[in-house]
Structures are given as structure tokens and as C-alpha cells.
Design a protein around this nucleic acid. Sequence first.
DNA 1: ATAAAGTGACTTTTT
DNA 2: GTCACTTTAT
Length: 724
Amino acid sequence: MHLTDGLNPQQHQAMTAGIGQVIVLAGPGSGKTRVLTQRIAYLINHLGVSPFNILAVTFTNKAAREIKDRVHTQLGQAPRGISLGTFHSICARILRREADYLPFDRNFVIFDQDDQKGLVKQAVRDLNIDEKMYRPNQIYNRISNAKNDMVLADDFPVNTYRDEVIQRVFTRYQALLLNSNAVDFDDLLLWTALLLNEHPEVRAKYSQQFQHILVDEFQDTNQAQYELLRHLSSTHNNIFVVGDSDQSIYRWRGADYRNILRFQRDYPTAQTILLEQNYRSTQTILDAAMSVIRPNPNRTHKELFTDRGQGEKIIVKEVFDGRDEGRFVIDTIAKLVAAGKADPGHVAIMYRINAQSRELEEAFLHANLPYKLVGAQRFYGRREIKDILSYLRLCHNTHDEASLLRVINTPRRKIGRKTIDTLRSQSRADDLNMSAVLLSITSQEDSPYIAAYSSAALKALYAFGEKLLRWHALASDASPLDLMDRIIVDVDYQSYLEDGTDEGIERWENVMELRRLAAEYKERRLVDFLEETALVSDQDTYNPSANAPTMLTLHASKGLEFPVVFIVGMEDGTLPHSRSFDDPEEMAEERRLLYVGITRAKDRLYLLHSLNRRRFGYTEPADISRYLNDIPHELIDGGRPSGIEYSLKKRKFEIQTRWKSEIKQPKPEPIAQFQAGDSISHSIFGEGEVLDSKLEDGDEIVEIIFEGGIKKRLIAALANLKKL
DNA sequence: ATAAAGTGACTTTTT
DNA sequence: GTCACTTTAT
């Protein structure tokens, strides 16, 4: 296949643009990834650029992988030597290589958000600041925002006393990070930008290597990332960026879509290319999307068009509450599938906040239907996974206090709070870190720290310290897998997890899953394993296989597409979220968020709003989202009235009475068919014994222990149980 | 030193 | 209603 096959004139223009600065403003579904990959292939094949001289940056590993795969296909071989990855991973690599210039060594660990919050808390405590007044969470946000804007602790703007306190915490926090030989997520970008800024020779080196720079999702860059790109392109100014300011949804993380304007100002000779033709959605969906985004101020309108035709109208559905919402979604999917109009795997259900997934999940569980969840309780956020990774991190870099604190008494090994406090104060007094004190106690008979402990405490510390020394020695040449196995055996992690509950078994299975991942790093170093596990994102957890509907936040939906999309919770307070009400910039972002969601849909779009919404455990009446009124009636199925004609109170009443009459319908009261002691068989789980059976909400819930000791709670009407 | 019981914040979105 | 963290009891 020739490189230019199937490209429209604008895409072709972008691909073949000369060297220099190019900005591609790409509407949703306009083939921007395609342009990016073909551009890379073009550089290599037509301009004879060595892959070694190309840098392509994305925001997620998934996007990076996708581009890499597609370039591979395009070229017929892997682009060897190309630098292609997320901002964070590219920066981590540079920092390790250039550690000599930096205040940490090349074995630094990367602190994730949990570690960061814990460290802020630590800093607050160290300084004897009231945690109630100065919430670590809030301070963490201020610090993170400052770093994204390239503001260091010394330059932190102080306007109030509170700012002054935050500045002190910031300073302390940064010192603690270095004490652990660690950097946080924000530091990866910040340190790299500072490094390039302050060391012309390093800047020249990388700028000369990366002769051609390509950036995906440019609207999501923050100040640090922008400066980074400026430095990296400083000797040649060959920079090709792709973005869409209407899809900028990470403002709260420091992203600034105005970087697009800055780019055009900083590079007045930049070529601008507009991609407006959409290859994904029906015209109806595009029209709805445009009607939602149009009211945003200060934007250049893009007229999205497609040759796919009008397609189906949009369905707007009012439901009574979250339960009703879930039932409607499931019912509708069932009907579409039965009619052969969609596969379950073609469906996405999107919401504003993660908490909304719960009621939807319950609906699926109740109906006994499978689903996929993106993000939420992510794999790498699980306790058992963090435990094991902390062990590995600690072995790799013993200075890592966050990891030490996590594992020093997990599983319980009689090292309690008092012992840990002593360890901490000793380390602070001598300006060391806690591991250094621990290892001193372990390996030096005349260690000055020994006297402070009881003999029982000393014994416990000694036992752990010795293990740590052995693992640390192993860490330099054993594979990640071997080290992990050694640790798991040495601390008997399995019996710690498996406490006889289903949850314990599940946790152990997760550890085994991590073990499988580690096994893939046989030929690679521990540091690579740790780095890649630290930098996976929720969005990377999306698994397109398995034929089941996907639930995800609107944020997580960016970059994906689905034939059928449900957007639930279209209510003022949820979408737009009430936290955004008082800031016009944030309100504009809420619109963009909905715009992103709508434009994920290829064929069918359902917008649901509920009359009642659960908040803080209590159900409250909710108002329809203002955005629904911006969608013209003719796009909506049934020509449903929108705007002021729409009488909310009347509708509320109708729906409530309808709902009541529905539930009043005499449903035959089921009689419990099973009782404790019955022997039964199940098509999947095999034979088992009933432990308990009770009626809940008109369903018979049976608790069964199957052969092999697996306990399950099943709904009798759905589980198809046979009495034996 | 640990397990149990109680308290209070929290819900926006995440590399 | 839930989680994480703190206090209290053993």
C-alpha cells in the first residue's frame, strides 16, 4: 500500500508538510492519529530521516503503543531506535541518563499520587502544622499545580499567611523526596525542563538527537511540557503538533489549551492545517456535538461534517433514579442486541464521576450480565499490588521511605508504631533516611542507634533488616520475577493474603497476575519494570476484547470510539458538575467534556437524565442538565421539546406516578425454593450445597458453597439451579 | 503490639 | 454510604 492511499487533501497536506513547525487542528474522528503515524512513516521513508532522530510524545501508553504499531504496519518493520512514549516515560529516561547533573542518583524511584499525598502529610506533621486546618490533600494540589507551572518552592507566590505555610510544606516535601532518592510525577517533567534550561550542553545533545519532534493531544500540555518541547526543538525548530482545543479536558491538571495560541505566537512561521472531515459519527451526532460546544466563548468554530449521512436520531431519556437508569441502559442494550443492531462490546456507558459507576454495576450484576470497567479501582492501586511493588522498589532503592513504611510491618512482624517513630526520629536527627538507620542497626554491631530499642523491637528490626539486605543484593542482578518470588516466599505473603475469604483469594490472584507481568521482563532490568508499572494510567487498562459493554468516565473516553454510547447523569450538578459552577473556565471545560463524550459515538447516542440523584448517600431531586436544552429538537427522537417549553414539574409528576403504578403491579411474591442443606448443581460452578436462602426485593438470594470451597451468592431466578 | 470500634471527610476529572 | 485514619480496649 502506498503511503498516501486514502488520505483526504488536508490529511495529505499535513503528512507531507515541509520541515519546520506544523500545527494540525484536528476535530474529533478526523483521523489525527492516522496523520501522525503517516507523518512519521513519511519522515522515515521519503525524507530519509533515521528513526533515531525522531521523538514522538503522547499522554498515554496506549496512544504510544497504537502509534508504534501503526508505524510498524506502515513501514513493514519496526522503527528501530525511535523515541516514542509518554511525556513522563521519555522524561524518566532522560533523567536517569543525566542523573549526574541532578540532586538524585540514577536509581531514583517514581512516587505516585498516593505516595505524594502521604509525603505531604509527613511534611505537614514534621513541621507541626495543624492537619485539620491544612489538609494534606489541598496542599498537595497547590504543590502539584505550582510544579506544573514550573514554580519551585522558593518562588512559590506568597500572598497570605496560608500561602506562607504551604510554601514551608512545599520546601519540606521536596527535601523529603530527595531524602528518599525519589521524584514525583510532576518532577519528571519539571526536572527535565530545568535540566535542559540550565545545561546548554545537555539541551544541545537532545535537541540534536531529536531532529523531528511530534506531539499528540497538544491541547493537554502544561507549562512544563511546553517549555520542554521548546528546549528540545531549540536547535532545529522541527516540531509537528496535533491537537483540538475543544477537547481540552485536563485544565485541573495544569493543561492549558492556550498553548495552541502560544505555539502560533512563538512560531509565527508555523503552518496551520485544519482537519474537519469526520470519519466516525453520523451527521446527527456531529450536529448535536457542535450545538453543545458552540456556546463556549473564545473558540474558533470547526464545522464538523461527514459523508455518513444523518443516521439515527438521538434518544433523550428521562428516568426516575439511578436504579431506573441502569435498568433502562441494560434493557436498551438487550433490545439492540436482540435486534442484531449491536454487539454488547460495541456499547459504552459514560459518566461524569466514578461514583456513578456503582449503581450501574449493580444493575449489571443484578441482571447477571458481564461488563468492563475502565479505571476506578485500578489494578495498580490495589493494596496487594502496591505492597509487592513497594518491596521491589525498596530493594532497588533502599532510600525509598514511602515503600519502607508501607512494607516494614506488612505482613505483621511486630514492628509497631513506637519502633517506627524511634527509627524516624533517629534518622531525622542525623539527616539520614530511615532505611539507613535500619541497615546500620542490622549490619553494625556497634551501631549507635541500637540502645534506643527494647530487645524485642531490636529482634524484629534485625530480622527484617537482614532480609532487606539479602534482597537488595539480589536486586542488582536477579530478574524482577526471581526477586519477587524470593520476597513472596520469604515473607509468606500468600498466607498473609489468604485469610479464608473470597477477597483473600482474589487478592492472591492479583499478585499472580502481577507475577505474570513481571515474567515478561525476564531479559530486562528491575528498573524498567518499576518504571513502567509506575507510569501506567487508567486509560491503559481499557481492554477492547471481551464482548461486554464498557463503563468509563467521560475523561477516560477520550481517544476511543464506540458504535453505541450512553451518557448518563445529564443533570445540573453532575454534568456540569457543581464544583465548576463558579468558574467560567471550568464551566467551559464541562462543555468540552460532554463534547468529547458525544463525539465518541459512531451510530447511536443515548442521553439520560434522572429526576433523582444520590448524593452523599441521600437521594435528592435533580434538575435536567442545561446542555440538553442546547441540542435542537429535530436531532432528538420524538422531537422532544427542549428549552423553556419543557415543563420539568409536570414531567416529574407523570414519571413518579408512572413509576408507582409500575411497581404496584402485583408481582407474584416468590416463594423460597431452596433452603440450607439442599444439594444443587449449577451449569458453570458445578455441584454445591446451599448455605442460606433469603428473599430480598422479591428475589430469592441463595448462598452456596461449591465444590472446592468457592462461595457464591446467586439469584435463584437467574442462576438456573437444579436440585439434586 | 494488635484488633476492634469510632470518627470524619469526602466525590470531579488522572499522567 | 464508604473509606481511611484515629482512638480505645485487650
